[in-house]
Design a protein around this nucleic acid. Structure first.
Length: 768
DNA sequence: GATTAGGCTTCG
């Protein structure tokens, strides 16, 4: 790595310089000598910004002073750095820091030497094999209650207020940030930079920042911060428990465990000392006379007049009010026409004014934005019977009004993208002609009536108990600790997997784990493996079973043993009999299930019969296979079965068999179905990415254990899902679902996860 | 090399 940052701990470099490097005194530098294995060290006294040479090569220049020979006549030298190395250095080199260069070239100057400057300069570049080391100083951070006028300090703070970068009246972008820390002292900082990237990437109140080299000035009797030379910032998500990953434009920065600790402490302090607004407002949750921040995607933009500009955005939810459409000339509208048409009911017009126009013009279609302090204003025109909702981003920057572009890596953007992808546009919408009707006005009375009807619409589900429980919003549920029970009224936006039979999972009621249903091949493979062990004749014909063996006529001979479990020392009718089989194939076992009540595949050990691997069913009954839980079961000896055999009338119930086989009742095969669903509440400010939700069999009124082998049941389930979530419908037209949902914890060695289960709810009879 | 803004308010 050509540019390295050395960390110094108690005066010692943690990454010492390579041993082949020898230090050279500045005053001994001469043109023509080989400095491949030599280095110079000094303090940066001047650094010039990165520029480009005429041929496009990056270039930067710094002046280094020999710190050990400060009284020497020749104690300063200029270093020219070229190419990528220049770019990297420009980002990490700051005035006053220690600078080391190795493998440089010395060039003699032909001009008169001035003051203490050397008559040579140095050239360094990656191509020439140079290496640059800078020594990170030990940063000291000043608490906000210890700031003094005229100092340049490093500090940490929680963002209490901010204005996203905007174009100032001077030459730079400006961002105003008010910080607070554990001292409860506030500091408002005015940050300027010609380069947007050098301003802190703050996305919300509660973010945590680290500022290096910020100048403190007194203004109106209060301390304020202002950017000074070499200002650098890191920004962190302020959420307790979120990964501590800095947002920064510089590729090299110091960040150590100590700093991680500081962030975590500030997060905890902020959690109880800063009011961080609740969940973000979605378009579906806007209210008239509300100022709100919106995370959205830009789908269209248009110039309106000199002082205003139109942004068309969507967030996947539908505004519950008719929204205005700002009339613009079709030729002025930038954006994908087809998409704009498809989104005509979901995208909203936001009119931005004055100082925001310039920034709005520069936005790229498709980018993700957070627009701060949008004004939702109810208004009605003279020729309208019904009022509509307007969205304005007023001029000025009060209240942090502004527009921020969010990177794709932002967690809110990731969530939004996933949600937008799940919003299916109806075929009819995409098939319609793309004639743009942007001049037409918003919805009319009919729309409003339809909307009211929808609100009163009956649910497609029926609650079978707990009628007195009142509805809870999904966001409350996801924000609360488990376990709890709730009633919800929600719409099913979409679900996974679309192949419904894949939604069947094995669920263990003991440890709550979900496991995939092993496929046929797994079982076949296990049977194949166990056929290699011949049945042990010593284990045949005991008091509780009678054994029969034979050898197959195939080329590769195979021994099969069947043990018929007796009752009262008697064999029973085949349809009442439990048999155990050794050495059978899948096909043979399948055939036997038609004839006998239950089948247990087994193999011989030296002194007992035992069950096969847990990936194989321990029991086959009819066409249903039963499995044990891989996570929490410990198999018990097979002879425990004799106790069931001794019962008056052995029922051979799978649950009962499971009980004698395993330490715990672990069997819950196919008892619960699991689908991955995204539930979404209409008119609430909530949406979520997919959550795992379990459904009881009685919800679908389909025995889950049989769906894998029944085309008819698979079709029935598909029809049910089509009724709950009709494909191609708009959100507004989706049916309501009323459900009871309970949250529960699933713990494994790695993490604790909250999962959800629908209970005491069934699909309405007239739905399917 | 200085300037920008200096949040405590928005309203077309």
């Amino acid at each position: 790595m050509p540019v390295q940052l050395l960390k110094i701990i108690e005066g010692q470099s943690e990454t010492p310089l390579p041993s082949h490097l020898q230090r050279e005194d500045l005053k001994h530098l001469q043109e023509g000598c080989d400095y491949t294995n030599k280095y110079i060290q000094g303090i940066v006294t001047l650094s010039y910004p990165l520029t480009k040479l005429r041929d496009g090569t990056d270039f930067c220049k710094i002046v280094v002073q020999d710190s050990d020979n400060s009284c020497s006549q020749i104690n300063r030298i200029t270093v020219f750095i070229y190419g990528k190395m220049a770019e990297d250095c420009a980002k990490i080199i700051h005035h006053g820091e220690t600078f080391i260069a190795a493998g440089f070239k010395v060039i003699k100057l032909h001009t008169e030497r001035e003051d203490a400057r050397h008559d040579c300069h140095l050239e360094a570049s990656e191509e020439a094999g140079s290496t640059i080391y800078t020594v990170a100083p030990k940063y000291v951070y000043t608490p906000l209650n210890h700031l003094k006028d005229g100092t340049v300090v490093n500090l940490y703070g929680v963002v209490k207020f901010f204005k996203p970068p905007y174009i100032s009246k001077g030459t730079d972008y400006c961002s105003i940030v008010t910080l607070v820390d554990q001292s409860n002292v506030k500091l408002t900082c005015s940050l300027f930079s010609g380069n947007l990237d050098f301003l802190p990437k703050i996305y919300k109140v509660g973010d945590i920042v680290r500022f290096h080299r910020i100048k403190i000035k007194e203004y109106n009797g209060q301390m304020q911060g202002i950017t000074s030379g070499g200002f650098a910032s890191l920004t962190f998500d302020g959420t307790v428990g979120a990964p501590v990953v800095p947002r920064t434009s510089s590729r090299v920065y110091t960040f150590m465990d100590e700093e991680q600790k500081t962030i975590e402490e500030l997060r905890i302090w902020a959690a109880s000392n800063i009011s961080i607004s609740g969940p973000a407002t979605k378009l579906s949750g806007v209210q008239p006379m509300l100022f709100f921040d919106l995370t959205c995607q830009l789908v269209g933009k248009a110039k309106v007049d000199g002082s205003s500009f139109l942004l068309k955005v969507w967030d996947g939810t539908e505004c519950p009010y008719p929204t205005w459409k700002v009339p613009v000339e079709a030729k002025d509208l930038e954006g994908e026409k087809v998409l704009l048409h498809q989104l005509r009911n979901l995208a909203v017009d936001i009119l931005v004014y004055d100082n925001h126009v310039q920034l709005a013009e520069s936005l790229k279609i498709g980018s993700f934005l957070r627009i701060y302090s949008i004004h939702a204003k109810e208004a009605s025109a003279d020729n309208e019977d019904v009022s509509h909702m307007e969205f304005h981003l007023h001029g000025g920057t009060c209240y942090g009004r502004g527009i921020g572009v969010l990177p794709e890596s932002n967690p809110d953007v990731k969530e939004l993208k996933e949600f937008l992808e799940s919003v299916t546009l109806t075929d009819s919408q995409s098939m319609e002609s793309c004639s743009m009707d942007i001049d037409s006005t918003f919805g009319n009375v009919t729309d409003l009536e339809l909307h009211l009807q929808r609100c009163q619409q009956l649910s497609v589900t029926v609650l079978t108990d707990h009628q007195n429980l009142s509805n809870t919003e999904l966001k409350t549920i996801t924000n609360s600790p488990a376990p709890q029970q709730y009633r919800i009224r929600a719409k099913l936006r979409t679900y996974k997997p679309q192949k419904l039979h894949q939604s069947v999972k094995l669920h263990c009621s003991k440890c709550n784990s979900l496991q995939e249903v092993p496929d046929r091949d797994d079982f076949d493979f296990i049977l194949h493996g166990s056929a290699g062990t011949a049945p042990n004749p010593e284990l045949h014909n005991t008091c509780w079973y009678e054994s029969v063996t034979w050898t197959t006529q195939e080329q590769k001979q195979r021994e099969i043993a069947i043990h018929f479990v007796k009752h009262d020392e008697m064999l029973q009718h085949p349809e009442d009999t439990l048999i155990m089989i050794e050495g059978g194939t899948l096909k043979e076992i399948w055939k036997l299930t038609k004839r006998f009540k239950c089948i247990i595949p087994v193999r011989s050990t030296e002194d007992d019969l035992e069950l096969l691997d847990l990936s194989a069913p321990f029991l086959l009954k009819g066409n249903v296979k039963y499995y044990g839980c891989k996570q929490c079961s410990t198999p018990k000896p097979l002879k425990n079965l004799s106790s069931i055999a001794a019962e008056q009338q052995p029922s051979w119930e799978p649950t009962e068999i499971a009980q004698v086989f395993f330490c715990y009742l672990i069997l819950n095969f196919l008892k619960n179905m699991q689908s991955r669903f995204c539930l979404m509440v209409f008119y609430s400010s909530f949406n979520t990415s997919y959550s795992s939700v379990l459904f009881q069999e009685k919800f679908f009124q389909i025995p889950a254990s049989e769906i894998l082998t029944s085309n008819f049941l698979q079709q029935k389930m598909q029809m049910t899902m089509n009724a709950l979530c009709p494909p191609g419908r708009k959100l507004g037209d989706l049916p309501w679902l009323e459900c009871f949902i309970k949250s529960y914890n699933v713990r494994d060695s790695m993490k604790n996860q909250v999962c959800y289960q629908i209970f005491d709810t069934t699909v309405a009879e007239d739905v399917v």
